[in-house]
Write a protein that binds this DNA or RNA. Structure first.
Lengths: 224, 224
DNA sequence: TCTACCACACTACCATGCAAGTATGCTAGT
DNA sequence: ACTAGCATACTTGCATGGTAGTGTGGTAGA
C-alpha cells in the first residue's frame, strides 16, 4: 500500500484512492473480503476515513457492503460492463461529431503528437504506455470539443471495464488495429467529416467487447 | 422535514434523501449554508450519518464543502446543465434506436397507455402529473430496450436540470408540443424506423434548453 | 478615530467507544 | 456420535469528544 504522505489531501481521499487503485489493478480481487478495521490498521488511520472511503467505493459499485456481516470487492458484472460501454459509445460518438465542427488547430497538433507516440509504443510492444496514450487520445478529443466533464463522468462509470481490461491478456492483438483507427479518426476530424468520424468511433469502441466468455471461464470466481 | 419512521433503511439514507429532496425542490436554495451540526439537530440524529449524507451530496455536486469553513448548497452551473443534457441526448438517441429493434408488444402497450394519460393531464393543465408521466415515458423506453441501468445513471446526473426545471414557470408553454413529440416517437418505434425515432428524440431533448438567460437574470443568486 | 491584534465561536476532520446484528465453534445434553 | 443452543468474536451502524483551521467582533493602543 502507498504512503500517506504522498497526499496533501484528506485522509479520506488517501484511503479512497489507495483502495480504488488496488481494486482496479486486481491487487484486491473480486470477491475478496475486507473490513473497516482491517484497512484502518493497514493504512494506520482511524475507522472514520476508511468508512467514508467505503461509502464512495460502494457508490462506484466497486465494493458491496452487507450491514453487520461484512464487505467484499464487487464481482464483475458483464451486464454493467456492457452498459458502460454502450453509454461510452453514445457519448463519444456525439463528442467526435462536435470535434469535427469546433476543433482548433492546436488540438489537432496535440492529437498528431499523441499519435506519433502511439506508433512508437506500438512498435516497441509497450502495452502500458499504449494504454495511457489511448486514454489520453480520447480525453484530448473530448477536451478539444469542450466536453471534458462529460468524458470524466464516462470514465467514472468505466471502472468495471478497466478491471476486465486488466484481466484480458489478449488485448495485445488489437493494438495495431487500434492505432490505425485512431489515425483514421484524426484524418476525419481534420477533414471535418462528422459522419465518417462517428462511424469510426463506434467501430473503435465496439472493439472493447472482449472475449468475455473466455475470460469468464478462466476466472469464474471473479464474475457473478 | 420528513419523519424518520417512514424509512426502514439506514439513518444515512434517511438524511440523504431528505436533504436531496429539499435541495432539488429548492426548499434549500442554491447558496444556502448548512452545517453538519445544524442538520443533525433538526433531524434528531447524530453527526455521523449527516456527514455521510453530505459526502454523497457532494459527489452529486449538490453540495459544496469547504474544509474547516462550512458547506453550502451548490449554485446552479449552466455548463453542467448543458453537459448533462448533452449526455442524455446521446444516450437516449442510442436507446430509442435499440427500442426500434427490440421492443416487445407489451412495452408498446405500456407506452400507449402512458400517452393516453399524458393527453388527459395536458387537457387538464395538470403540470405535476405531466412531469411524472414524462419521466415515466422515457424510463419505459429505456426499460423496454434493456437499458434501465443506463437511464438511471443519466437520471442521477440530471439533478441540476431538475432544479432549473423547478425554477422555470414557462414550461407550460411546451407541454403541447412535448406530448405530440411523444406520440410521434411511439409511432416511429412501432414502425421500427430508428432514423426517424432518433431524430425525434434529439429534437425533443433539445427543448430542455430553456430560456436560461431569463432565469439567470431573475434569480442571479442561484447561479455561478 | 483608526488600526492591529487577540480571544472566541464557529466549521469540518478524525479518533474512538458503544450498540446491534451475524457467523462460528465449543459445549452440554441426548 | 450427533445435535441444539449458547458464548464469543467478529461485522457495520451510530454517537460523541477532541483537534486544527478559519472568520469575526471587540478591545487596546496609537
Amino acid at each position: 500500500m502507498l504512503n500517506r504522505t504522498k497526499y496533501q489531501n484528506s485522509t479520506r481521499d488517501f484511503v479512497y484512492e489507495t483502495l480504488r487503485d488496488a481494486i482496479v489493478s486486481l491487487e484486491l480481487p473480486p470477491g475478496a473480503t475486507i473490513s473497516e478495521k482491517e484497512i484502518s490498521e493497514e493504512l494506520e488511520v482511524s475507522r472514520t476515513p476508511v468508512r467514508e472511503a467505503f461509502l464512495r467505493l460502494t457508490e462506484d459499485e466497486l465494493l458491496t457492503v452487507l450491514p453487520q456481516r461484512g464487505s467484499y470487492i464487487s464481482l464483475i458484472d458483464l451486464n454493467h460492463v456492457e452498459d458502460a460501454r454502450f453509454l461510452r459509445e453514445q457519448a463519444e460518438a456525439g463528442i467526435i461529431r462536435l470535434a469535427c465542427e469546433s476543433f482548433s488547430h492546436s488540438y489537432i497538433e496535440k492529437l498528431e503528437k499523441n499519435l506519433k507516440y502511439q506508433k512508437f509504443a506500438r512498435d516497441n510492444d509497450d502495452e502500458n504506455e499504449l494504454f495511457i496514450l489511448d486514454k489520453e487520445f480520447h480525453r484530448l478529443i473530448a477536451e478539444g470539443a469542450g466536453k471534458t466533464r462529460v468524458w470524466e463522468v464516462i470514465q467514472k462509470m468505466d471502472t468495471h471495464s478497466n478491471r476486465l481490461r486488466k484481466l484480458s491478456l489478449a488485448m495485445k492483438l488489437n493494438w495495431k488495429k487500434l492505432v490505425d483507427q485512431h489515425k483514421e479518426m484524426v484524418a476525419a476530424i481534420k477533414a471535418k467529416n462528422p459522419d465518417q468520424a462517428e462511424q469510426l468511433m463506434r467501430e473503435h469502441l465496439a472493439l472493447l467487447i472482449y472475449d468475455q466468455k473466455a475470460l469468464k471461464e478462466s476466472y469464474p470466481d471473479y464474475f457473478n
